[in-house]
């Protein structure tokens, strides 16, 4: 980074709520510092100015849900040196991956007056299902400090400190007593990747699994425990089917409960 060249950054959006790319704007003060080292070349949420590719870093938000998306992500990959998928949509298909558990036609018919105008895929999928992804930043939304860490690490040519262990480690480091043990709350913390700073348990709520499965998620063991705490099979399906419903470990576990419920 000591060379005169400022790396060019592009921010791309697919099927998503915009929350993750807004995390970059949320950086506020730090964003000014980042702008001192990185050129915001393409970021429609922030500026209408547009600098043509290729780009050194592409942050990609959202999941692939249409044939048009499939085509566009290939184009983006071709003009990106480093491609970073940001957020639950881009890394696991997002909440819209719930469509995988039903027939898309049925949805389309219920929602749209003219279903024939809708051109959509059967599944909502992560960016990595379509192109080579260099790094995945989890979260719904992503944590702005993790985003800054990834950009910082890139600028300094080092490995980003993005842990893949579970939320429990963050709870214990910040001194939050376990909500499952002390309150009997259903919590996805033991199977969810850290990164949020264990936000929900700090407010006496169970973890919602926003950051998706951790490195060695043992969802079956968690379900056993949740069952003992009185969580119904239906509630377990809903627990595992939220922002990261399409993540393999969560998808599989939710299906196990569908079988039991039937």
């Amino acid at each position: 980074m000591k060379s005169g060249h400022k790396p060019k950054l592009a921010v791309w959006k697919f099927a998503s709520c915009d929350g993750c790319q807004l995390s970059l704007l949320d950086c506020e003060e730090e964003l000014l510092a980042v702008a001192g080292h990185i050129e915001l070349a393409y970021f429609p949420e922030a500026t209408r100015a547009e600098i043509r590719g290729p780009y050194d870093i592409s942050l990609v938000e959202g999941s692939i849900t249409t044939p048009h998306d499939q085509h566009r992500i290939q184009k983006i990959r071709r003009q990106s040196r480093l491609l970073i998928a940001i957020g639950a949509c881009a890394t696991s298909g997002g909440i819209q991956a719930l469509r995988s558990f039903a027939r898309v036609e049925d949805y389309v018919r219920v929602v749209y007056a003219h279903p024939e105008y809708i051109s959509t895929l059967e599944r909502s999928t992560a960016i990595a299902k379509h192109v080579q992804v260099d790094f995945e930043l989890r979260g719904c939304p992503i944590d702005k400090y993790q985003l800054l860490e990834v950009l910082n690490a890139y600028l300094n040519g080092r490995k980003p400190n993005i842990p893949t262990y579970c939320v429990c480690v963050e709870c214990k480091r910040r001194g939050t007593p376990c909500v499952m043990v002390s309150r009997g709350e259903a919590c996805l913390g033991p199977v969810t990747q850290a990164g949020c700073g264990a936000l929900c348990p700090a407010y006496a709520r169970g973890c919602f699994g926003c950051f998706g499965p951790m490195e060695n998620p043992h969802t079956e063991a968690l379900s056993e425990r949740l069952k003992a705490l009185g969580v119904s099979e239906g509630d377990m399906i809903r627990l595992f089917r939220s922002f990261n419903a399409g993540a393999e470990a969560f998808r599989k576990e939710s299906k196990a409960h569908v079988r039991i419920e039937k």
């Binding site: 262990y165 579970c166 429990c168 480690v169 214990k172 480091r173 376990c178 913390g189 033991p190 199977v191 951790m214 490195e215 060695n216 998620p217 043992h218 079956e220 063991a221 968690l222 056993e224 425990r225």
Partner: peptide, 13 residues
């Protein structure tokens, strides 16, 4: 292994 969640709580407490 079938019961442990790899959550690290035991070692942290």
């Amino acid at each position: 292994e079938s019961r442990c969640m790899n959550c690290a709580n035991c070692t942290l407490v």
